[in-house]
């Protein structure tokens, strides 16, 4: 069984990010980067699948971005991925193009499962997983907080592994079954990702990272999303004590909150 785990490199959400108004871009040079936390959940789950129900699972981490992404791919290898693929592009493409690249990789690697974060914490698009499933025509389960391997369905029309997954929806936990190959996007409560300390990263040095230029995948990036402006949101707050509910209402009204 092969599991593909796309990994996105995102700025550390703990840090303050400034907007470069001229370039309509984020000022990220001094900001540390991390693996998108939801992707870390996805990778952790893949490792647990290998530690548990499917010991022969092969886990492939994919990064789509500039050479700096290799660092996050190394971390992914230290966390348990068997190998990594780095698709070299100058900056992270929009979700549609990420999905196209992932489709191309999927066609090359023919995995049984694409396990990825439900969204990235930088742009919060929450689209790539759904696009990939659509492009591949695979079943999908999004916002998953539990994955369970269940015995094969005796019904002959459903072949291969079957999964029972719990999805976190606004109205509660929805449990569904799906058949592989499939796309699953991970929610935060799926697991607690392990921490890759330096010795683990050193040990993972021997694992390969394959770099594929975009041209080799025969993909021409055609962004569907255009960024036209960026604005910094002020996070400064004013605190004020009020004595009564009436006063609270007055203040809310005065400050145009009501």
């Amino acid at each position: 069984m092969k599991i593909l785990v796309p990994i996105k490199r995102v700025p550390d959400p703990d840090h303050r990010i400034r907007v470069d108004l001229q370039r309509i871009a984020l000022e990220l040079s001094d900001v540390p980067h991390i693996i998108n936390p939801f992707d870390a959940n996805a990778l952790e789950e893949a490792v647990r699948i290998r530690e548990g129900p499917v010991p022969d699972a092969e886990i492939i981490a994919i990064g789509i971005g500039d050479p700096a992404w290799q660092q996050e791919l190394r971390t992914s290898l230290a966390m348990g991925a068997d190998r990594a693929i780095h698709v070299g592009v100058s900056g992270p493409p929009d979700p549609w193009n990420v999905a196209r690249i992932l489709r191309a990789i999927t066609e090359r690697e023919s995995p049984d499962l694409v396990l990825m974060g439900k969204q990235a914490v930088d742009d919060d698009s929450n689209q790539a997983g759904q696009f990939v499933a659509g492009l591949l025509g695979w079943p999908q389960a999004t916002f998953v907080s539990q994955i369970e391997f269940i015995p094969l369905d005796p019904e002959p029309s459903i072949a291969g592994h079957q999964l029972r997954v719990a999805r976190e929806t606004d109205t509660g936990i929805e449990t569904i079954r799906l058949r592989l190959p499939a796309v699953i996007t991970a929610d935060l409560r799926l697991n607690e990702p392990r921490y890759a300390a330096l010795p683990a990263i050193l040990k993972a040095k021997r694992k390969p990272i394959e770099t594929i230029p975009l041209t080799e995948l025969n993909i021409e990036l055609s962004p569907r999303v255009e960024r036209i402006a960026l604005q910094e949101v002020s996070s400064s707050r004013k605190c004020q004590y009020v004595q009564s509910v009436d006063e609270l209402l007055d203040q809310l009204f005065l400050n145009r909150c009501l």
């Binding site: 230290a78 966390m79 348990g80 392990r194 921490y195 300390a197 330096l198 683990a200």
Partner: peptide, 14 residues
């Protein structure tokens, strides 16, 4: 920790 087994809140602090 070096074996990559550490997780959770304290690992996040690290």
């Amino acid at each position: 920790v070096g074996d990559g087994r550490f997780r959770g809140a304290p690992a996040a602090a690290l």
